[in-house]
């Protein structure tokens, strides 16, 4: 039987039989459908994915006319990570002039709102200068990162210590205090950058500290929306599932713990988010076909449930992309093509 070149969730090359490939696709979509209580991929969609995943091309691309919008997280941090000495405005220009980016993002090296607050004046003038030079939209992005508000990094008690000690009430109160502090910082920094000319604010890796983290981003969104009715807010998630670290937090009557992307997006759009960044995690011990089939099933349900544009996160370790330092373009581009063509989402 003909063998198909594929990869594992950590990027390692493997070979599958065609029957094995279809089995992986079916197992991936069934896993998502079962967990999210959402429809699995139809036979046509599974067949489309099967045909795509047999590709032997070095690079794959969507059909002309199917292209979508690109937004980025950690924008101005990425070039420096490769050891290339550049300033933030140079990086924004590289994205615009060399990478064909539809949008760009200014960000601080410590990609969280809390550390930016005391030095926000170092970014407002950079945003102002960048806006003189740039044509494509420039976001400002950072993470709520609620962990920075609990001991030893912040003033609140540490729920990770309190709750295992049986101090449930104290742990929940610590999360609630952290939400208030994070919201204050997110609104402060978001306001400063918007008033400096940012085209949008990107709340990234939302939910990294569970339901309290998501709650902070939702409240900050509402406050910024009320303060600046025309502001664009993008909310990119940290994972596929909102962990119930507090467990009883709600927003507009919806319990946040346990929400999957198709449910998260409804809460986000109600809070005033303009663009939602869904995240589905990659499982390294499973195959790429299993992962991308699962990702597409979750993302399609999210797109179907959403009234706002959905930009699927497809960076390291999410969106079906293998978890490895130097991902191979064959499967990055295959994931990109499959995601866009089958889910009909609005961007990546």
């Amino acid at each position: 039987m003909k063998k198909v070149f594929s990869r594992t969730g950590d990027g390692w090359p493997i070979e599958l039989t065609e029957a094995g490939l279809m089995k992986e696709i079916e197992a991936g979509t069934n896993d998502a459908a079962e967990r999210g209580k959402i429809p699995h991929l139809s036979e046509d969609e599974r067949r489309h994915l099967f045909d795509l995943l047999k590709s032997t091309c070095k690079i794959n691309g969507v059909e002309k006319g199917s292209e979508v919008i690109m937004t980025y997280d950690g924008g101005t941090n990425k070039i420096g990570r490769m050891g290339i000495s550049t300033g933030p405005i140079q990086v924004l220009q590289l994205y615009e002039r060399c990478f064909g980016a539809d949008t760009t993002e200014l960000s601080h090296l410590d990609y969280s709102f809390k550390p930016v607050k005391p030095i926000v004046h170092e970014f407002t003038h950079v945003m102002e200068q960048a806006q003189f030079l740039m044509v494509v939209p420039v976001f400002y992005g950072a993470m709520p990162n609620l962990g920075l508000y609990t001991k030893p990094d912040g003033p609140m008690g540490n729920p990770a210590e309190l709750i295992p000690n049986g101090q449930i009430k104290e742990g929940k109160e610590a999360y609630e205090g952290a939400i208030e502090l994070a919201v204050e910082d997110m609104v402060y920094v978001g306001s400063a950058l918007y008033e400096a000319g940012a085209d949008g604010i990107n709340f990234d890796s939302v939910g990294a500290s569970g339901d309290a983290d998501f709650k902070a981003a939702l409240v900050a969104t509402e406050k910024l929306r009320k303060k600046y009715p025309n502001i664009c807010i993008e909310m990119g998630m940290a994972g596929e599932f909102i962990l119930g670290m507090h467990s009883e937090l709600t927003h507009n009557g919806v319990r946040l713990a346990g929400l999957y992307p198709h449910e998260q997006v409804k809460v986000a759009q109600q809070a005033g988010v303009n663009i939602f960044g869904s995240v589905i995690n990659t499982t390294t011990t499973k195959s790429f076909p299993w992962n991308i089939s699962r990702v597409i099933t979750f993302t399609k349900a999210c797109v179907d449930a959403s009234d706002i544009p959905v930009h699927g996160n497809m960076g390291q370790g999410v969106g079906g992309l293998p978890v490895c330092d130097v991902p191979s373009i064959d499967h990055v581009s295959l994931a990109s093509k499959a995601m866009v063509e089958i889910t009909r989402l609005d961007g990546l």
């Binding site: 919008i69 990478f99 939209p137 025309n230 664009c232």
Partner: peptide, 24 residues
């Protein structure tokens, strides 16, 4: 890779214009 295989192309084409309609 994402911009090349799925993106609109930014200022090379009209990606920034379409992005602005999503954002505004």
């Amino acid at each position: 890779p994402h911009a090349m295989c799925s993106g609109m192309g930014g200022m090379r084409t009209s990606g920034d214009l379409v992005a602005r309609m999503q954002m505004t």
